Measured scan of single mutants.
Amino acid sequence: MEVRTIKVFTTVDNINLHTQVVDMSMTYGQQFGPTYLDGADVTKIKPHNSHEGKTFYVLPNDDTLRVEAFEYYHTTDPSFLGRYMSALNHTKKWKYPQVNGLTSIKWADNNCYLATALLTLQQIELKFNPPALQDAYYRARAGEAANFCALILAYCNKTVGELGDVRETMSYLFQHANLDSCKRVLNVVCKTCGQQQTTLKGVEAVMYMGTLSYEQFKKGVQIPCTCGKQATKYLVQQESPFVMMSAPPAQYELKHGTFTCASEYTGNYQCGHYKHITSKETLYCIDGALLTKSSEYKGPITDVFYKENSYTTTIK
């Protein structure tokens, strides 16, 4: 009895394709271990004539594949690729409408935090270190965002349907971005203890939790000093293409032309909904596939993004 075979390709990165001759009487799992086709788990399936010449994702289970996976995804987590594939199996079914010149995501599976993050990423200057993220990001900007969303979920250790947080998501993504040249110098002034300067680099240099107003941050924000008295913390120097200011959701007025974009969060910790506000020729609110415009805006804002380049204080 002759062994019926077909020729397929296996890959971990969709760049390096490895030619395989597979036995049609055995499952993919018996031949390769966990195997995925377009995100779908085909591990328990036997090869079919229609699979001839198709590319299958496999887990990096030998040295060659491990090197290829690390170079593309910059992670050695053995569960990463499987999590990416199972997320992709959902995100490829989502709709990605162009809204006001940006790629958004039609609401499904509690994905409003991903839509808000995706919209924000198209408006701030950011370059990702893992080629996987950078490639998928370019495709997302062009309207094909399924891979990018699935990668975000995998890097953030999230599953489809789980509630997510924009600030946490951005923080994970910033860790995989090139923020080497970003720098922030802060000064804390206390009447009792004097003053202390701190220099922050990388992710810490672009994120701040405690106030939404970048102007206020430049002037000074009140913080408790270690001595128990009130101290003032203010920005001395900022070198970065953008800054992200966050605070627990509270009524906040966004003035046209003073910011790049913002995240609105309605609801409580267990259950809520994100919308995205962007400042173009007027203010726009993007909620999944829905767009509304207004000249002014007041609502429960939790993150505001500002364009920056270089700032030095005039406070002496």
Rank of each mutant, 00 (worst) to 15 (best):
V3W: 14
T5L: 09
T5G: 12
T5N: 14
K7Y: 11
V8L: 11
V8R: 03
F9L: 12
T10R: 08
T11S: 09
N14D: 11
I15Q: 13
I15L: 14
N16G: 05
L17S: 13
T19A: 14
Q20S: 12
V22A: 14
V22K: 04
D23N: 12
S25C: 12
M26L: 11
M26A: 13
M26C: 14
Y28S: 10
G29I: 06
Q31C: 14
Q31N: 12
Q31F: 12
F32S: 04
G33E: 06
L37E: 10
D38M: 10
D41N: 07
D41A: 13
K44P: 12
K44E: 14
I45G: 11
I45C: 10
K46N: 11
P47E: 01
H48M: 12
H48I: 13
N49T: 09
N49V: 13
N49H: 12
S50H: 07
H51N: 07
E52R: 11
G53F: 11
G53P: 06
K54P: 05
K54T: 12
K54S: 13
K54L: 14
T55Y: 07
V58G: 01
V58R: 07
L59N: 14
L59R: 08
D62L: 06
D63C: 06
D63H: 14
T64H: 12
L65K: 11
L65C: 06
R66T: 08
R66V: 14
E71I: 10
E71H: 13
Y72E: 10
Y72S: 11
Y73L: 04
T75S: 12
T76Y: 11
D77H: 06
Y84P: 05
Y84R: 05
M85Y: 14
S86Q: 14
A87M: 01
A87K: 07
L88Q: 04
L88E: 06
N89H: 07
T91M: 05
K92W: 07
K92V: 10
K93W: 10
W94F: 07
Q98I: 15
V99D: 00
V99S: 03
V99R: 09
S104A: 09
I105R: 04
K106T: 05
W107D: 07
W107R: 05
A108F: 08
A108G: 05
A108W: 09
D109C: 01
N110R: 01
Y113W: 15
Y113A: 02
A115N: 07
A115L: 10
T116E: 05
T116H: 06
L118Q: 02
L118Y: 12
L118D: 06
L119T: 00
L119A: 13
L119Q: 01
L119F: 01
L121Y: 04
Q122P: 06
I124V: 07
I124F: 02
L126F: 13
L126S: 00
K127T: 11
K127E: 14
K127Y: 11
P131W: 01
A132F: 03
L133Y: 01
Q134F: 03
D135C: 06
A136R: 01
A136N: 08
Y137I: 07
R139F: 02
R139G: 10
A140T: 07
R141C: 13
E144R: 05
A145P: 11
A146Y: 04
A146E: 09
A146M: 06
F148M: 12
A150K: 01
L151C: 04
L151H: 01
I152Q: 00
I152L: 04
L153E: 00
L153K: 02
A154R: 08
Y155L: 07
Y155A: 08
Y155R: 00
C156K: 00
C156I: 09
N157R: 07
N157P: 02
V160W: 01
G161S: 01
G161V: 00
L163R: 15
D165C: 15
D165P: 02
D165S: 15
V166A: 06
V166N: 07
M170N: 01
M170C: 04
M170H: 00
M170P: 05
Y172D: 11
Y172F: 07
Q175H: 13
Q175S: 08
H176N: 06
A177T: 11
N178T: 06
N178S: 10
L179Y: 05
L179P: 03
R184C: 04
V185P: 05
L186W: 05
L186C: 09
V188M: 10
T192V: 09
C193P: 07
Q195Y: 08
Q196M: 10
Q197G: 02
Q197H: 06
T198N: 08
T199Y: 03
L200A: 15
L200M: 08
K201F: 14
K201S: 09
G202E: 10
V203L: 10
E204M: 11
E204P: 11
A205T: 02
A205W: 00
A205R: 01
V206E: 05
V206F: 01
Y208F: 14
M209Y: 15
E215A: 08
Q216K: 11
F217C: 10
F217Q: 06
F217R: 03
K218I: 03
K219I: 05
V221P: 00
Q222R: 12
P224N: 14
P224S: 13
T226S: 14
T226H: 12
C227A: 03
C227Q: 02
G228E: 00
K229H: 07
Q230S: 12
A231R: 04
T232K: 06
Q237E: 11
E239R: 11
E239A: 09
P241I: 02
M244F: 03
M245H: 01
S246D: 01
A247C: 06
P248S: 12
P249S: 05
P249E: 02
A250D: 06
Y252V: 06
L254Q: 00
T258S: 06
F259T: 03
T260P: 00
T260N: 00
C261E: 02
A262Q: 05
A262N: 08
A262K: 03
S263E: 04
Y265C: 07
Y265F: 14
T266G: 05
T266L: 03
T266R: 08
G267D: 15
G267T: 15
N268C: 07
N268Q: 03
N268V: 00
N268W: 10
N268P: 06
Y269E: 15
Y269I: 15
Y269M: 15
Q270E: 15
C271T: 00
G272Q: 00
G272I: 00
H273S: 01
Y274I: 04
H276R: 00
T278Q: 08
S279T: 03
K280Q: 12
K280C: 10
E281F: 02
L283Y: 10
L283G: 03
Y284E: 11
C285P: 05
C285R: 04
I286M: 07
G288S: 01
L290R: 12
L291H: 12
T292G: 04
T292F: 11
K293S: 12
K293L: 07
S294W: 15
S294N: 09
S295F: 01
S295P: 07
Y297R: 04
Y297S: 03
K298Y: 14
K298D: 07
G299P: 01
G299W: 02
G299L: 05
P300G: 03
I301T: 07
I301V: 10
T302M: 04
T302K: 01
V304Y: 07
V304G: 00
V304Q: 02
V304W: 04
F305V: 00
Y306G: 01
Y306I: 05
K307R: 11
K307E: 12
K307S: 12
K307T: 10
E308H: 02
S310G: 13
T313P: 10
T314F: 14
T314N: 15
T314Q: 15
I315P: 15
I315G: 15
K316H: 15
